[in-house]
Design a protein around this nucleic acid. Sequence first.
DNA 1: GGTAGACCTGGACGC
DNA 2: GCGTCCAGGTCTACC
Length: 342
Amino acid sequence: MAVRPQGLGMLIMNPVALFILYTESAMPGSVLKIVPPSDFDLARDVCSYGYFVLLPNYWDVKNQTLSRVLEFDQAPSACVIDQRDDGSLRVRFDRRLDRGEQASARVQISRMLNLDHDADDTRAFHRVDKRWKKSGRARLFRSPTLFEDVIKTVTSCNVAWPNTVNMNRRLCEVCGRKSASGAYSFPSARKLSRTRVGTLRGRCRVGYRDQRIVDLAKLFVKGHVDERWLADEGTHDDEVFGFLVTLPGIGPYAAGNIMQLLGRYSRLAIDTETIRHAKTVLGYSGSDAQITKKIRAHYEPFGEHKFRSYWFEIWRFYEGKAGPSHTWERDQVSTTFTAANL
DNA sequence: GGTAGACCTGGACGC
DNA sequence: GCGTCCAGGTCTACC
């Protein structure tokens, strides 16, 4: 990959740019090759959900690569992921990984890119909703860990999108660990379980979410959130939803969103954005309660896939306003992401 | 079961 | 530059 010249001023102003230049000009670390399912498309499948613009994720529009820092027991490591002409993924790290770390990296990347979701899953979705067959959309981007997905969801509740962007940036900068290339990881559950609520409020600006984030982290550390059970096909969606709403800071919207991040698409995550979508795109009117009822009826035919049908409708609306999502510059998207701003 | 108000931040707005 | 208002989902108290 070619080294792209960048000004020193940009490096000073933008630590992510520093990371990109470093990783593209000198990759002293491990390189992994991952063979994804045949229908996987890095640009389309990364740029499919808003979390791809939240730190520590960084989508490099020019190079069409995903960069971020992954957490390992000993030390974090930054990586850059690109897709080769043969469809395989190349993952370059900023330091050498031992065998255990390489195995962990594969698990984290597989979760993040939804690589367990194979072509059969895609076909099943497209049989129910043919609108996305041509584009191939079926996967939704997520985090390397369920914990990060849960915290990102909590930081997206009751705030405008720019605040969510800032909270995640500060969580990484204040509580994350620095990689060899200078970029920060997303803080682990263990780290946040030991972080003072005053730090979260004062430095990360998470507001009243401070205690809830610490409590959530403690639940993860103590093993009270069993991802294996939550992701198990034998566990009914109602059981998962019922458990999630017992977690601090998780209400009906957040639980519905976490369910899709677990690969369970049978429920909607209805928020003000959904209502806006229903009014402006679907043409519904009435009180919020009436509109919510219409929304549920509208997506009911999509059954087990209804969240994806709903989400890709919203995503198409955003792309209609702002262009293809793989061309969205993070700083631009940080301030103009919701339909209210588009 | 339904509803009202508090929680907290940051942007928009008026002065 | 300052003060005020508002949006956003969850939680708690109350009816």
